[in-house]
Simulated scan of single mutants.
Amino acid sequence: MNINHLLRQIAGKCRYLNRQLLICHYKRCLYQEVERNKGEKVVYLFSNPTHSNLGDQAQTVCILRWFATNFSQHKVICVPMDFATPKLLNLIETRLRSEDILFVHSGYLIYNQHPHLPFICEVVKRYKNNKIVIFPQTVLLTDKDVILRTQEAFNTHRNLILMCRDEVSLSNAQKLFTCRTLLFPDFVTSLIGNSEFAFGNKRADILFVLRNDGEKYYSDEELNNLKSKFTDLRIDTTDTTIQLGMSKWISHRDDIIKDYLECFSHYRLVITDRYHGAIFSQIVSTPTIVLSSADHKLSSGVKWFPKEQFTNYIAYANDLDEAYQLAICFLRQGEIPFNESKYFNENYWNKLYGMIMGINIV
């Protein structure tokens, strides 16, 4: 056996064992955290990520910020699926009070193969006496068995709110479920317009933020052909999935996300087929061209950005030829100011608490 191959195998097994040890440690800590709580009002967040997808982790940052603003009198307890033992779920059930509220993390969790969907269904079925809010989702279910199991959970809960992050998902949800639905943008849009992310860096070159999974629409050859047309500019390529240990995310999540956003602020233009690649770019006011993915997530998601506030900052390309033409237009417009528009907070996130709690907020 090749020695390098053997070393890689050993390193991989060591990483796996280290992750399992960490999971055992965090399971104990989480159980103790729930057990210690005797009288505080609690907000529970289920299915928050432990993996290294920057878009998912950025959603966690935004959700926790929103909790801090709107549920400052509540204790926040995060329950990742990896840490949620039956013993823990039973303990939560015995400790729940009427004023406790349960939330499910946002993302693309409601589709056929997602490993979190059965866990979400279990949460909804188990805790029927408390309000549950599922934060903005892309919804795409086609498997009949999965649909039936999800309907069994969702349609029997009398106080469930399902938030959808695009009109296609909303339509899909309303055809399948009887619970209350809300149309809301992705949670990371709550950072757009925040001067905390006006880094003031000098801009140069183009950044491609490209996925490499089943949601990819264009081939590497097609994308490389697009890159080759920009002969006078350096091209960098990255993704929103990185290699980083679980403990780093738990202890340094905010700093990691802010550092990554700062990186986006160095470029004149971003071209991406990652939805959060597009949102990250808008947070730091980097002009962005959005490419198609294999599903409706990008084509629907980009519709959230109204022309009045974002005409010089973001555009959707129907094909790669159009992407190149849009890129030339963006590059010719020169430096543009930081976009201070509070559109998403004023129209959505500042109003969400009242919509959930039944309070009119002007």
Score class of each variant (00 low, 15 high):
117 L>P: 04
207 L>T: 03
21 L>P: 04
360 N>I: 14
15 R>W: 14
165 R>S: 10
79 V>M: 12
235 I>Y: 00
129 N>H: 12
258 K>F: 11
139 V>I: 14
344 F>Q: 13
182 L>E: 10
316 Y>L: 12
207 L>E: 03
255 D>W: 08
115 P>W: 00
251 S>D: 13
333 Q>D: 04
160 L>T: 01
235 I>H: 03
253 R>V: 09
331 L>M: 07
133 V>L: 02
30 L>G: 01
136 P>R: 08
137 Q>A: 11
99 E>C: 07
209 V>N: 11
179 C>R: 00
197 F>P: 03
6 L>H: 12
54 L>V: 00
236 D>N: 15
196 E>A: 08
290 V>I: 02
290 V>A: 08
254 D>L: 03
228 S>P: 01
271 I>E: 00
273 D>S: 12
18 N>Y: 13
209 V>I: 15
90 N>A: 15
283 I>L: 13
42 V>C: 12
87 K>Y: 08
55 G>N: 04
294 A>Y: 08
118 P>C: 08
40 E>A: 15
331 L>N: 06
59 Q>R: 11
180 R>G: 07
360 N>T: 13
275 Y>I: 07
139 V>D: 06
33 E>Y: 05
122 E>H: 03
305 F>Y: 15
104 V>D: 04
95 R>G: 01
65 R>Q: 13
338 F>G: 08
78 C>D: 04
334 G>A: 01
3 I>W: 06
216 K>F: 02
74 H>D: 07
118 P>R: 04
173 A>W: 05
230 F>R: 05
291 L>W: 03
38 K>Q: 13
95 R>L: 01
340 E>G: 02
221 E>P: 07
271 I>S: 02
28 R>T: 14
107 G>M: 01
271 I>H: 06
49 P>S: 14
172 N>K: 11
343 Y>H: 08
76 V>F: 07
7 L>A: 00
286 T>W: 03
257 I>A: 09
255 D>C: 08
227 K>Q: 12
48 N>P: 10
165 R>V: 09
297 K>L: 07
323 A>R: 05
160 L>Y: 01
303 K>Q: 09
245 G>R: 13
202 K>E: 15
19 R>N: 07
25 H>T: 10
238 T>E: 14
193 G>K: 02
125 K>V: 08
77 I>W: 02
228 S>I: 02
338 F>D: 03
172 N>S: 12
325 Q>E: 11
294 A>E: 10
152 E>K: 14
197 F>N: 03
284 V>R: 11
350 N>R: 00
298 L>G: 15
162 L>I: 01
162 L>K: 00
285 S>K: 10
279 I>D: 02
82 D>G: 01
115 P>N: 04
325 Q>D: 13
165 R>N: 10
190 S>R: 06
232 D>H: 00
266 H>A: 07
142 T>Q: 14
270 V>L: 05
176 L>T: 06
358 G>C: 06
109 L>P: 07
221 E>W: 12
250 I>N: 09
307 K>T: 05
143 D>V: 11
362 V>W: 11
345 N>D: 10
308 E>F: 11
128 K>I: 09
250 I>D: 09
113 Q>M: 04
310 F>D: 12
158 R>V: 10
240 T>E: 11
68 A>I: 08
232 D>Q: 01
125 K>L: 13
242 I>S: 13
257 I>D: 07
345 N>T: 09
68 A>T: 10
21 L>C: 12
96 L>W: 00
3 I>T: 09
266 H>I: 02
312 N>F: 14
235 I>E: 04
201 N>T: 10
235 I>W: 06
305 F>W: 13
